[in-house]
Design a protein around this nucleic acid. Structure first.
Length: 345
DNA sequence: CCTCTAGGACCCCAAGTCCA
DNA sequence: TGGACTTGGGGTCCTAGAGG
């Protein structure tokens, strides 16, 4: 099975720290046995607040308007889906993307092993965790959205749930949750098919604070690979979907800056009630400028490793570059492509 | 052996409330 | 106002043990 090699290569490249054990399975389902999928997130939901940051059932109806996009999010009586519930979507999307990248047939219904989901999203596997997983499914299915966001080439104006349906397949004895069939909403599914997804840091699942997760998403979406992204606290508050007053929100941001464990990005407060995000990496070696890659090099990398997120590759490579003492590169493109080729084998 | 269940103790968070 | 405290629910860690 050729995937074993791929997994080993990725495992080695990602570094040993906390990497999940090899739990490949021989399966008939085309999506479930791909465990090494890089976490993907849906771009539309990253840009607009859909998920609740609250730590208790959130009955609010969210209305949001930004650059002509309107979203109304209506919770069920169980409350809005939380940002933790989103882990399930991220997992599903990652499975779909992995299947797409492997050239397999995909459908809106994703079959997954509950245990895989829990371990992949850095959770425990206690009975309580399964119970909460179940509640998360219910919140996801119960949260209705009305939007005119365009994903792929279609503009959706109708209402739908975050997931359309889910089914737990239990073993007859013991009542254990063995596998789950999740049917994604059409909107999400189209987003995946059109590949409007971004790679998340694996450390995302280690973020505990809901607000930290949300802020990371926003930074990933808006800052991306740019040298920096500056945003007002006010706008950040609006984009995050936090229900806190601005002064409390600002305090939260300051606490986050203090803690400093936002993956990939550095956060700084600037005069005028602004927050600036900048990608980490070249920051340690500020004397040396990080190598700039041409678009051609990225295209070539895409060709060498089809299906992989080249920006993630670039970020990994920059990390390697920074760790090796940030040497000055005469031909960064060639160095990068050499590294990619080696990795593609 | 690994996976999973069960349950208790404890920790954390965002939001709500109080108070100078 | 703005800081400090409280609240209510979720998340985490831990142990012991069952089941496949």
């Amino acid at each position: 099975m050729s995937r074993a090699g791929t997994q080993a290569a990725i495992g080695a490249a990602m570094g040993a720290g906390g990497l999940l054990p090899d739990r490949m399975r021989q399966g008939d389902f085309f999506v479930c046995d791909i465990f090494d999928a890089i976490p993907k997130d849906d771009i539309a939901s990253m840009e607009h607040p859909i998920f609740s940051l609250a730590t208790r059932p959130d009955p609010r109806i969210l209305d949001y308007e930004h650059n002509g996009a309107r979203i109304t999010v209506t919770p069920s009586v169980r409350g809005l889906a939380t940002i933790h519930d989103k882990d399930i979507l991220i997992f599903c999307i990652s499975q779909l993307m992995a299947a797409l990248n492997a050239g397999r047939q995909v459908s809106r219904t994703v079959h997954l092993k509950a245990h895989d989901l829990l371990t992949a999203t850095n959770r425990e596997t206690s009975g309580d965790a399964y119970r909460r997983l179940r509640e998360a499914f219910e919140r996801l299915a119960g949260t209705r959205i009305t939007t005119n966001i365009v994903t792929g080439e279609t503009e959706t104006t109708t209402g739908f749930g975050l997931i359309e349906g889910w089914e737990i397949v239990r073993k007859t004895r013991g009542g254990r949750m063995v596998s789950v069939a999740v049917t994604l909403s059409d909107w999400l599914y189209r987003a995946v098919l059109s590949k409007s997804v971004l790679t998340l840091s694996r450390d995302y699942f280690r973020l505990r604070k809901p607000l930290e997760r949300r802020i990371y998403e926003l930074a990933r979406k808006h800052c991306g690979r740019q040298p920096s992204w500056t945003v007002s606290v006010e706008t950040l508050l609006k984009k995050s979907g936090s229900a806190s007053p601005r002064r409390v929100f600002r305090k939260m941001l300051r606490d986050m800056i203090e803690a400093g464990h936002l993956p990939d990005y550095e956060m700084v407060e600037e005069p005028g009630d602004l927050i600036r995000f900048a990608p980490r990496g070249g920051l340690v070696e500020s004397a040396a400028r990080p190598p700039v890659l041409s678009k051609q090099a990225l295209d070539e990398a895409r060709r060498l490793m089809p299906g992989r997120d080249v920006y993630a590759l670039e970020a990994d490579w920059r990390g390697v570059w920074a760790r090796s003492g940030a040497p000055r590169l005469r031909k960064p493109d060639a160095a990068f492509l050499g590294w990619v080729r080696k990795r593609a084998e």
